[in-house]
Computed example of a mutant assay.
Amino acid sequence: MPEPTVGLAAGYFQSYSVVGLLTLVGVLFVAVAFGAGRLLRPVVPTPEKLLTYECGVDPVGEGWAHTQVRYYVYAFLYVVFAVDSIFLFPWATVFAAPGYGATTLVEMFIFLGFLAVGLLYAHKKGVLSWT
């Protein structure tokens, strides 16, 4: 009598071969598209084409612009709250499942604790003030 795990292993690795084949087809598709673009495009460099192009406006002045860091901090805080909200929805669905209530409640309080520590740190550093 043949070993039953041999058939299971073959089916298991066959499913990975399908994923590998699709990955290979995707990589080949991208490589062919880039290769065709390189072969078919016209290459006529002129001084006008080599200039920096910025929204149809000729570049004036230096290429270095100062930006205030606080805008990046606000963007980073937005990302933190977006990740928080994305984590809350699956948590709410698992919390209602029988047998997971206490565990998921503790995990959520740990997660919210990390978030609160980060917000307190940002508040102490004065990052959250608009002035």
Rank of each mutant, 00 (worst) to 15 (best):
P2F: 08
P2C: 08
E3K: 04
P4R: 02
P4F: 04
V6E: 07
V6G: 00
V6D: 02
G7D: 15
G7M: 10
L8H: 10
A9Q: 14
A10P: 01
A10C: 05
Y12Q: 07
Y12T: 01
Y12N: 03
Y12E: 06
F13K: 03
F13G: 01
Q14D: 08
Q14W: 06
S15Y: 11
S15I: 05
V18N: 08
V18P: 01
V19I: 13
G20Y: 02
L21F: 08
L21Y: 07
L21R: 05
L22D: 01
T23M: 13
V25H: 04
G26K: 03
L28G: 04
L28Q: 03
F29A: 15
F29P: 00
A31I: 11
V32D: 03
F34Q: 08
A36P: 00
A36F: 10
G37V: 02
G37H: 04
G37C: 05
R38M: 11
L39W: 01
L39N: 02
L40A: 12
L40F: 11
R41L: 02
P42C: 06
V43M: 07
P45W: 03
T46N: 01
P47H: 01
P47C: 01
E48P: 00
E48T: 02
E48I: 00
E48M: 01
K49A: 03
L50M: 09
L51G: 07
T52W: 11
C55K: 14
C55D: 14
G56E: 04
V57T: 14
D58Y: 08
D58K: 09
P59Q: 14
P59C: 07
P59L: 12
G61T: 05
E62I: 03
G63T: 03
W64V: 15
A65R: 13
A65H: 14
H66R: 15
H66I: 12
H66E: 15
T67H: 08
T67F: 09
T67K: 03
T67A: 10
Q68E: 15
Q68R: 10
Q68S: 14
V69H: 05
R70P: 02
Y71T: 09
Y71M: 10
Y72N: 07
Y72S: 07
V73W: 00
Y74T: 02
Y74C: 01
S85L: 15
I86Y: 13
I86A: 15
F87I: 09
L88I: 09
F89G: 08
P90Q: 05
P90W: 04
W91C: 00
A92T: 06
T93K: 14
F95S: 01
F95A: 06
F95L: 06
A97F: 13
A97T: 15
P98N: 08
G99C: 03
G99W: 01
Y100Q: 04
G101A: 10
A102W: 14
T104S: 04
L105Q: 12
V106S: 02
V106Y: 00
E107A: 10
M108P: 00
M108I: 08
M108C: 06
M108W: 12
F109A: 14
L112V: 09
L112H: 14
L112W: 12
G113H: 07
G113E: 05
G113R: 06
L115S: 06
A116F: 13
A116G: 00
V117P: 00
G118L: 15
G118C: 13
L119P: 03
L119K: 06
L120F: 11
K124A: 13
K124P: 01
K124H: 11
K125N: 10
G126S: 06
V127R: 00
V127Q: 04
W130P: 02
W130V: 06
T131L: 08
